[in-house]
Amino acid sequence: MLQQILFYAFSALVIAAGAMVITVRNPVYAALSLVVAFFGSAGLWMMLEAEFLAIALVLVYVGAVMVLFLFVVMMLDINIAVLREGFARYVPVAVVFAVLMMVSITLVVGPRHFALEFVAAPPPADPDYNNTQALGRALFSQYLLPFEAAAVVLLVAIIAAIALTLRHTRQTKAPKPERQVQVQRNDRLRIVKMDAEKNT
């Protein structure tokens, strides 16, 4: 009973926040709604006794990805009126694509394959069950190869992102901290011994 109330509460939160993401006008509000949606999803995962995934979702998406998102969105000076121009003209096309997407998604993950009678509710885990340990075992034994492959893909993506944004030709007068931290006192300061001024 309590579980059902919690489930519907979290689901309602996720759906409401998701709707807010695409309907609110202010992009900062949209990003913050997405944060709320992530929290709702984390709550749902927590109810599936997947506490590692739930906390990792908050840690990675809310704690890092969305911070950078907000960072960018706050710096943009978005003129919403310009963005909304021609909205009415494109509505028919948008509706056609939305319906197509809806139909294809329903066909793939709809009730034909994922109705409640196909997917039994998982039995509640015993109190000693450690989701983190179970996940680690699975990742480093059964799914070791896909795990390593994903790591390599991520590494390639990081290198590509750095290579795309690195500009060698940029001539700046920015100071080089690696040289600055090596400065010793003797490079900058000369102590001069002087006699005190004499009274004549």
Partner: peptide, 25 residues
């Protein structure tokens, strides 16, 4: 006394920045 306590701490300390950036904006 939760199993993933360390992870929980890390997740929550990373949330502290939201107050600051929301305030700044």
């Amino acid at each position: 006394n939760i199993n993933a306590g360390l992870l929980y701490i890390l997740a929550l300390t990373s949330l502290g920045v939201y107050g600051i950036i929301i305030a700044g904006w």
